[in-house]
């Protein structure tokens, strides 16, 4: 694989030409916030948090789906990007009922820590306060759409890694929602293999193991690369 050289935040970086800007930046030690992206799953480009500025391109580009190019000049941290990222997180916090204080993921949540990192200390927009029922019908896991940010990691892991495609998205716009089976109770959706992968990849407390109480749920994602590399390359990474 040929290697290209690009500039990220004034630093010369080389990366294999099939890498994305996000991968190259992270390899070079730059942090770019992401929510829908998760290594091992097909990139989605939906959360828009990983937007970066690329010289000569008028639009902002989602680094998770933009491939590196020779001579590219990328900026990942500008005031404009920072402000937009802040607003995006505020919009996410406003559209559902993200009550961190009573969340199983309190303290371990990607949305919560991202908000703190970006300096979101309050939300300037109206809270939409949707009325969304919690689905606790599954024997092992619970789905709380109030805490969902529609990143679709669960859908992708269910489809791409587990192969069950029990989960999908219904509706559109602000009325989008994650469903199991024919929008039926999770416990009755027989396409669910109860593997729990969706729970582990969920960035917030929208999917969690039954029995966990406030701040008790922690998630681990090593299994993704473990499975994928094991499946494709017959290589199992013990070091991870």
């Amino acid at each position: 694989m040929p290697v290209v050289t690009l500039t990220i935040n004034d630093k010369l970086v080389s990366a294999q030409s099939d890498k994305t800007v996000l991968e190259a930046a992270r390899d070079a030690g730059f942090e770019i916030p992401t929510l829908c992206h998760l290594e091992g799953l097909t990139p989605r480009g939906g959360c828009r948090l990983c937007l970066v500025e690329v010289e000569g391109v008028p639009r902002l580009l989602a680094s998770c789906v933009t491939q590196v190019q020779e001579g590219m000049v990328v900026r990942t941290e500008t005031e404009r990007l920072h402000n937009y990222r802040k607003m995006m997180v505020e919009l996410l916090l406003a559209e559902r009922n993200h009550v961190c204080a009573v969340c199983v993921m309190n303290g371990h949540c990607e949305l919560q820590s991202l908000a703190a990192k970006l300096g979101v200390d309050h939300v300037r927009y109206d809270y939409l306060c949707p009325d969304l029922p919690v689905d606790a019908s599954h024997e092992r896991n619970t789905r709380d759409p109030n805490r969902c940010i529609l990143c679709a990691r669960c859908i992708r892991v269910c489809d791409e890694v587990e192969g069950a495609h029990c989960l999908d998205m219904m509706g559109r716009g602000i009325h989008c929602n994650i469903i199991t089976g024919m929008n039926q109770e999770w416990g009755k959706a027989r396409s669910c293999t109860a593997c729990g992968k969706c729970v582990q990849v969920c960035p917030t407390g929208a999917l969690f193991k039954k029995g966990s109480s406030v701040a008790e749920m922690e998630k681990q994602r090593e299994f993704l690369i473990w499975i994928l590399d094991g499946r494709d390359k017959k290589v199992w990474h013990w070091s991870r």
């Binding site: 200390d121 309050h122 809270y127 949707p130 009325d131």
Partner: peptide, 19 residues
């Protein structure tokens, strides 16, 4: 100063907003 999550976000009391 908005002091604590309830003042900042509505927090737990705002859980009644769907009713």
């Amino acid at each position: 100063i908005a002091f604590g999550d309830c003042a900042v976000t509505g927090n737990v009391p705002a859980l009644r907003n769907r009713l």
